[in-house]
């Protein structure tokens, strides 16, 4: 079976590292894996999405995830959760940070940031797991590890052994930042 995980957020939130950790989890199991990233202009504070796909039985063909195909959406920001919701399978699961980042049209008063997005998505019938990854990361002393907090939260609901994820974090994070990231993972796992 191919499993499709869509990671979304705002450029600069660290979705690349998150996707690489998930990719590492899959290849550590010996599974065929594809990870599709976004580089360049859209990274400049725009809406960004990366895809992680793996198969425990055969090959992954397409590296992209289309509408109605994601088993899981991991989102760093509420508005992005809502934006990418059409990519989720009918019975798919959402792991999201409750952080809000106002896009420029909202900042400049030309658009409104919609209210109660997570509640609305839940009313749709989708399972939503949430935490405020940024507040947790801030409490750990570095807002940048919010991405790994969220990976920790996902790990708990992923069905994988925790140790498999910890090993992937060790594999993907530079030695210098490892301790902080492992703490972030734990904090997310226990959130």
């Amino acid at each position: 079976m191919t499993k499709n995980i869509l990671i979304c957020g705002v450029g600069g939130q660290g979705s690349l590292l998150a996707s690489r950790i998930l990719g590492q989890v899959a290849i550590s199991q010996g599974w065929d894996t594809k990870v599709s990233e976004v580089h360049g202009m859209s990274q400049r504070g725009g809406s960004v999405v990366t895809y992680v796909k793996y198969s425990d039985t055969g090959k992954v063909a397409s590296p992209v995830i289309c509408r109605g195909e994601a088993d899981v959406i991991i989102s760093f920001e509420q508005l992005e959760t809502a934006r990418w919701l059409p990519f989720l399978k009918k019975d798919g699961k959402i792991v999201t940070s409750t952080q809000k980042i106002y896009p420029m049209p909202v900042i400049s008063g030309n658009a409104v940031y919609p209210e109660s997005l997570i509640e609305k998505i839940r009313e749709n019938g989708n399972v939503v797991v949430e935490c405020n990854a940024v507040d947790i990361a801030k409490a750990l002393g570095n807002v940048k590890v919010a991405n790994v907090v969220l990976i920790g939260l996902y790990a708990k609901h992923s069905g994988f052994d925790k140790e498999i994820f910890l090993e992937a974090v060790r594999e993907c994070v530079p030695e210098k930042f490892l301790e902080l990231n492992l703490k972030a993972f734990e904090a997310g796992y226990n959130a």
Binding site: S47, A82, M104, P105, P114
Partner: peptide, 19 residues
């Protein structure tokens, strides 16, 4: 055509901006 969910809200665009 795919089957998918959506949320009942207008989602503002998020264009790239100067940092």
């Amino acid at each position: 055509e795919p089957e998918f969910s959506s949320v009942d809200a207008t989602i503002p665009v998020r264009p790239p901006v100067m940092c």
